[in-house]
Structure formats: structure tokens, C-alpha cells
């Protein structure tokens, strides 16, 4: 299991963000989650140890075959790839 950072907030279901610490769109997505005040977990995949990176990438690819970031997964089913502000707002409103 990859360790995630948990952020408290309003319960809108299980919200998981896979991000990179260096990526501008990931930062914007993280800010948006903070602004919306929803409970979520996130992980900066680039900061993990090599074997954990592999595990995290395989997990991301399951939801988003291109393996790109940010990948936002809501309730293990709805997947939003990239900083799609409107879509994220609607999904978590």
C-alpha cells in the first residue's frame, strides 16, 4: 500500500489524487480540492521510493492508461485526468 497524505474536510466520498510535486496542473488541482474543502488523500508519486513509484504507477495506469498526472479518482470509479476545473467542481459539489 502506498502511503497517502490525508486532508480532512467535507465527506464527498473517497477522493484520491495522484500528483507530482513539480507539476503545475497538479498544484492547481490540489488548490482546488483545498478550496472546495473536501476530504481527500493525495500522494506525490515522484517523491516515493523507486519500488513504491512502480506500485503507484501501476495503480494510476489502472484508472488512466496513459499514466499521466494529475489523476483524480472519486469512489474508485470516476476518473478525472488533468486539471479539468469544471468537471472537478461538478463532481465534488
Amino acid at each position: 500500500m502506498i502511503e497517502m497524505t490525508h486532508i480532512d474536510g467535507e465527506d464527498k466520498g473517497k477522493v484520491v489524487l495522484y500528483a507530482l510535486s513539480t507539476c503545475g496542473w497538479c498544484a492547481k488541482t490540489k488548490e482546488l480540492l483545498a478550496e472546495l474543502g473536501v476530504e481527500h488523500s493525495y500522494v506525490y508519486v515522484d517523491l516515493l521510493e523507486p519500488d513504491e513509484i512502480e506500485e503507484a504507477l501501476t495503480e494510476v495506469e489502472r484508472y488512466n492508461p496513459s499514466g499521466s498526472f494529475p489523476t483524480l479518482v472519486i469512489n474508485d470509479s470516476r476518473v478525472i485526468v488533468g486539471f479539468r476545473e469544471q468537471e472537478i467542481r461538478e463532481a465534488l459539489s
Binding site: 507530482l20 503545475g24 496542473w25 515522484d46 504507477l57
Partner: peptide, 8 residues
């Protein structure tokens, strides 16, 4: 690239 995961 800062927005992609590098292999090293």
C-alpha cells in the same frame, strides 16, 4: 518535464 514522471 516537471509534469511527467521521469524514470531516472
Amino acid at each position: 518535464c516537471p509534469c511527467r514522471i521521469a524514470s531516472g
